[in-house]
Amino acid sequence: MFDLFPIYSPATLTFLCAVLFVAGVVRGFAGFGAGMIFMPVATSILYPPTAAASFLFLDFVIAMPLVVRAVRICDWSTILPAVTASVIFVHAGTWFLANGDVFALRWIIFAIVTGLLLLLISGWRYHSRPTKPVSFGVGAVAGVLGGISQVSGPPVVAFWLSSAKEPMIVRANLIVFFALASIGTIIAYVSNGFFTLEVLHLLIPAIPAYGIGLFLGSKGFGKADPKFYRLIAYSLIALAAISSMPALDAWLR
């Protein structure tokens, strides 16, 4: 059961752990973005549900220390409606993935993510205090996108970055949101039987690689300039847009 190599070659495990380390550094620093780095690479060499279930477990369990610190400074008034909507609508996204035209849906995702990025670059800011319906709507979009492609970050990132809040609060919001929103995804994955022995075998070497990356990334955030934080966030949204393009499947998958 604990013999890794009949399922994964040493080269595959080493490569995936290296990618997870980089993804962990990014997640620890920015509060999001690890899935945007890991999933396009992992799904090119692993069965997609195995890659998704492995990453979900890692990000939910290993990132808990970040959540403990973030709950003290996050904005609960905007997080709770967004989380509620995401937990509900992730199942809608999963249904679309199973029954819809996935190729067309992925182009829609690319258009949405690219539009959000251009909106942020333009300098637009949401100056009003976010209402519960607005927060709920943003969470719903994130849930649908997460169910379809595991790219749920850009809507909530764009929403909180546009509020002109301090990067510390934006990062805390993202950390808490993804931790709570993962509950809906876990339920969906368990009901579909995604947590298999292959997932367990991958997690054994992946946990320390991702954990060390998270630790180093979180340490780097405390020394970062707010402008640098926003630049990293914009770059990660751009990465999400590029990696979701069906036209690049031949190179990314």
Rank of each mutant, 00 (worst) to 15 (best):
I237A: 04
C74Y: 08
T14P: 00
P65C: 11
G33R: 08
P65M: 12
T196P: 11
A172E: 07
S122V: 14
A247N: 12
V26I: 11
I73C: 13
V156Q: 04
A111E: 08
P246R: 01
G143M: 10
R230D: 09
S77L: 13
R171H: 06
P48G: 12
I62F: 02
M168C: 03
N99I: 11
A140L: 12
L239D: 09
A18Y: 07
L58H: 01
L120R: 09
D225M: 00
V102N: 10
Y47G: 09
P154R: 05
M36V: 12
S77E: 14
P49A: 06
L239P: 03
G123I: 06
G100W: 02
A34R: 05
L252K: 14
W124E: 09
M36D: 05
F60I: 00
F103H: 15
Y234F: 14
I148C: 07
L174Y: 03
L252Q: 14
P246A: 02
R230W: 12
N173H: 01
A42L: 08
V61I: 11
V87E: 05
S128R: 13
A209K: 00
G211M: 08
A51Q: 09
Y210I: 05
K219F: 09
S44G: 10
Q150W: 11
G146R: 01
A250D: 14
S235C: 14
V156S: 01
A241P: 10
I62A: 07
L80I: 15
F15A: 01
F228C: 14
P167W: 08
T43N: 12
A51I: 03
L200H: 08
I108T: 11
P226M: 10
T94D: 12
I112T: 03
A42D: 02
L200A: 15
A42T: 05
R27N: 07
P133S: 11
P81Q: 06
V19W: 03
M39H: 01
V199L: 02
T50C: 09
I7A: 12
L231V: 14
L214K: 02
R253P: 03
M36A: 12
F178C: 08
P6D: 03
L239C: 09
A188P: 04
V102A: 06
P65A: 03
S77T: 13
N173R: 06
L202G: 04
F5D: 15
S128L: 12
D3F: 01
R129Q: 15
I109H: 05
R230Y: 13
V87G: 04
V67Y: 07
R27I: 08
M39S: 05
L145W: 01
I232Q: 06
L252R: 14
K165Q: 15
S163D: 05
F21A: 02
S9F: 06
F110A: 08
F195G: 04
L119D: 08
S243I: 07
L180V: 01
L252F: 01
L56Q: 10
T94S: 14
Y8E: 06
S244L: 07
H127T: 15
L145Q: 03
I183L: 10
R72W: 11
V134W: 10
H91A: 04
V83T: 00
Y210M: 09
I109N: 06
C74N: 09
W124D: 09
I232N: 01
T131M: 10
T50A: 03
S149D: 11
G100N: 05
L118W: 11
V134D: 00
I237G: 00
T185Y: 07
L20G: 03
L236H: 04
F89G: 03
L66V: 06
D3K: 11
G100P: 03
A18I: 14
G143Y: 07
G222M: 13
V113M: 00
